[in-house]
Each structure stands twice: as structure tokens, then as C-alpha cells.
Amino acid sequence: MTSPPLLAVDDLRVEFPTPAGPVEAVGGVSFTVSPGETVAVVGESGSGKSVSSLAVLGLLGSGRITSGSVRFQGEELVGAGRERLRRLRGSEIAMVFQNPMSSLDPLFTIGGQIAEALRIHRPISRGAARARAAELLREVGIPDPERRLRSYPHELSGGQQQRVLVAIALACDPALLIADEPTTALDVTVEAQILELMRKLQHEHGASLLFITHDMAVVAQMADRVVVMYAGRVVEQGAVADVLRSPRNPYTRALIDSIATPTTPRDVPLPAIAGSVPNAADFPAGCRFHPRCPEVLDRCRTSEPPLLDIEPGRSSRCWRHDAGQAGEPVAAGGSVPGVR
């Protein structure tokens, strides 16, 4: 990618206060999104992927960005004023949430809510906003948009509700669309339709897409590049085709192995990663994945591997890259050139 990135997140750290003291949910995450590109952030629940995306919008609630930077179109967003962030939200960076039913205000019509998204950022009349809302509904494939404008959220199916949320997100032609597990609450056939729709609209609007998901199969369908997160850290990133074809990090490999494909043998149980993501208050020493890692080394228990550039545009966080193949930089401590 030679063009300057639209979004550059660098060494982002996010803390949440708890009765037992602050807990770091995201610990030094870096990634970039180029114009028009789709970047998927994958990881299990609790890996910090949603928190990272909310941090971009400054919507952390009680959480706090302790260090790092978020640059959007060259502008630093960490420490930017509330009003500046508010103006960016919805107009330049829009978000589609996981649960479409609860993301729509039950008391207002679909039309009213799309029109509201427009009127927050643009000085247009009620009538013009309505006309544009109908246009947007048609664009997201809702039949009979003029009538649907007057529907209330509960009168729509889950898939249609998610289409409406996509319409709201696209209302002001944002440069970046953040989708936080947009299809998790939907069934599989509807999921495919929504993914298709998002891909189509992203191309038509020329927007970049930051796609948060836990589903590797969705990553394969949607993304250009993938960022794999585990326990608040980036463990591997690279082009989707490369990462999926030859995952270098044991965690990525384990995630990919647990996808069922048509050729998966039916009599063998699908492999699963033993255990669960550690609590952010109590991350293990050394590599955070070592208690669950099938390829654990002694070294992994005591010190954490850095994120190494293993190929151009490809990086992974594992001690195995050290001892392994030729051509890989040898890491010592954390002060190695190429370490992010």
C-alpha cells in the first residue's frame, strides 16, 4: 500500500477502571486502514477487538486511552476535543453495531432515524432528509421504501433492521465504516446477504471498511487484510490470502483449523482451542497465548515475543520465528529493527 493510510492506529493502549484497579483491555495495538481497503480484525470474545474500534470513535464510556495514537486522514484523534470527535462520528467514521434490533430506537420510525442521522451533520430540510432516507432504503435493498419509512423497528425482520443500520451508517457518505460483528445476530442466509450488500455499497461509496468479527470464514469473504488479535495484542497481520493460506502464528493456525469446510472429515471432531481467553485483569506472564498454545516453548512462559515483520506487509508475534527458518530476523528482547 503506497497511498497514505486513511486510519493509522499506533501502539494504542486502553484501560478500564475496575474495583480492583485499572485493567488494560488493549495493550499496544497497531494497524492501518488504507482508502478503499477492507481490514478485518479477528479474535475471540475478550480479545480487545471491539474496544479498539470504539476507541477510534472515542466511545469508550468509562474506559480511557492511556497511550498511543489514532490518526484519521492525518489528524490525531487521541486527545481531540469532544466536539471534534462528535462531528467526525457518523459523518466521516460511521459504525454498524452487532445487534440490529437494540441499536434502533423502538419509539421512532425507520424514516425518522435515517433522517436524524442526516440532519445531525447536514443542514437539510425535513423533506429533503426524508427523500434521501427513501433513497438510502432503496440502496440497501429494502422493498417499498416509501412505506417502510413509516415502519417502526419491531415491524422489520432482523436482516431488514441491519439493512436500515447500514443505511444510517452510509447516510453521510463516511470515509470509514466500522462494522462490529454486524452479522453475528443474524442467521446464515441473511448473513450472506448483508455481507454482500456491505461489500457492494463499500465499493460504490468508495469507503474503507474496518470489519470486526470472530469468524475466519467471514474474513475470507470480506477482507483485503486481516489483523488477528488475542488478549489485547495483535498476534498476526497480513494480506488475507497469505494469512489464511499459510498462517504463521499458532493462534491464527488454531483459529483457521477450527473452521468447518466441505472437506472436513465428518467422523473426526472439529478441533477447538482448549480453554478460553484469559481475563484482562489477569493475563499470563510471557506470551499471553502460551497456556493454550499447542507449540509452546520454555521461553514462551517467561518472556513475551515481539511482533516481528516476517515478510513485507506481514507480521507475527511468536518465539518460533526465531529459531525457525532462514531469512527471518532474529529477535532479542524487544529492541530489534522491524519490531512494531
Partner: peptide
């Protein structure tokens, strides 16, 4: 804590708008 309040924030609604248009009616 409702999702639609977070969604309203994510579309850039001002605090006043969120309170008057979304919190009060609900």
C-alpha cells in the same frame, strides 16, 4: 445503557439531542 443510545452517539448526536430525543421519550 441501551444500544440505541450508543448507536445515537456513534452517529454523532449531541448530548442534548440524545437526552431530549432518545432518553426522555424512552
Amino acid at each position: 445503557e441501551e444500544r440505541y443510545i450508543e448507536a445515537a452517539r456513534a452517529t454523532g448526536a449531541t448530548i442534548g439531542r440524545i437526552l431530549v430525543r432518545h432518553v426522555l421519550p424512552n
